[in-house]
Design a protein around this nucleic acid. Structure first.
Lengths: 171, 171
DNA sequence: CAGACTTGCTTGAACTATCAACTTCTGCCG
DNA sequence: CGGCAGAAGTTGATAGTTCAAGCAAGTCTG
């Protein structure tokens, strides 16, 4: 199974140091455990995975509780395809409905239904509790701030817009 | 915020402050983007998702390149069921094989094959690069250390062993 | 040593994610 | 206008995840 003899990589790669490896392993472990934990909590209590819950929250925060599909996808950092499937499922559950966009016939709005809003209202406390217990209650204020900054940096580096991010003269 | 008849929850929940919300949103965005990014990179280059790659790494680091299924699952922070499916797939790809455990007839070893080791060798540099670019190259040494500590704390709080962690008299 | 319980691991069904088409519509350029 | 590139969103096939249930082998208890 020869795929390629390492093209575009002349010299020895910069392996992670022991310290970096420890950090990275901790990152993987924490994120794996936390995602799993929140998914399980929300699946059990609210009947949907964490990311679907996040979609409902985004809609609830939006004017008229609605958002164009593409906007919602961008905001949740997922592909349009994934969102399409997700909204289909949320529609089946009665928590979201689609509406045509009058100004662009290709467009669709995802709209939070009253039922969807109610589900959110009912399960938000439990979810906040879970997040608190797993994260905020265990960190000092300094660590919380640091976490925010670090995550902001990582996210920025991965934004799809990154392509042009090194062309500051275009901004 | 009137949340009215909240059953099984006497007092008003402790909502996240604005600051906490910002941190939390950054966390979700960064982890979503990063997981996606690494999955895509490894799927494209090595033909497997990130977590599968992690399993091969664990095996490679283990004595005789083998680990009991349960050990591997614990170490990767996933369920045995998920591991079972994963190993089945890795077996099909020829990167892992199963072996019976002589001392416990219920037991199975997952063993990294030579092909598996080769795949790892070939694609490790690209993966390390991706991790560096997304994370370590963007953080100061202090931030790296802070990230490690924070993630360690979160992971510890979510270890399955947590159940008995507040019953020290049992230890 | 029988029975009950636990551990180790697997299985199948239902669900979710990904990837590559595909449809429809918009904006643009001549 | 006519044509065409690109955007918005969906779809279906394939792959991965979850959950509950299951089997078989080990362990404990009386």
């Amino acid at each position: 199974m020869k795929t390629a003899p390492e093209p575009a990589r002349a010299d020895e790669p910069r392996w992670l140091t022991d310290q970096e490896q420890r950090v990275w392993r901790s990152y993987i472990e924490a994120t794996t455990l936390l995602e799993d934990h929140l998914d399980r909590q929300l699946q059990r209590d609210a009947g949907m995975p964490h990311i679907y819950y996040g979609l409902l929250v985004k809609l609830a925060e939006s004017p008229h509780r609605r958002l164009r599909m593409t906007e919602l996808a961008k905001s949740a950092k997922i592909t349009r395809s994934r969102l399409s499937h997700a909204v289909a499922r949320l529609e089946k559950s009665g928590w979201v409905r689609r509406e045509d966009c009058p100004s662009d016939k290709r467009g669709q709005f995802a709209v939070l239904t009253d039922e969807g809003h109610e589900v959110l209202r009912r399960h938000a406390p439990g979810h906040v509790d879970a997040v608190r217990q797993a994260v905020f209650d265990r960190l000092t204020p300094e660590q919380q701030e640091s976490l925010g900054e670090i995550m902001r940096i990582i996210a920025e580096g991965l934004e799809p817009s990154e392509a042009g991010a090194d062309l500051p003269w275009l901004r």
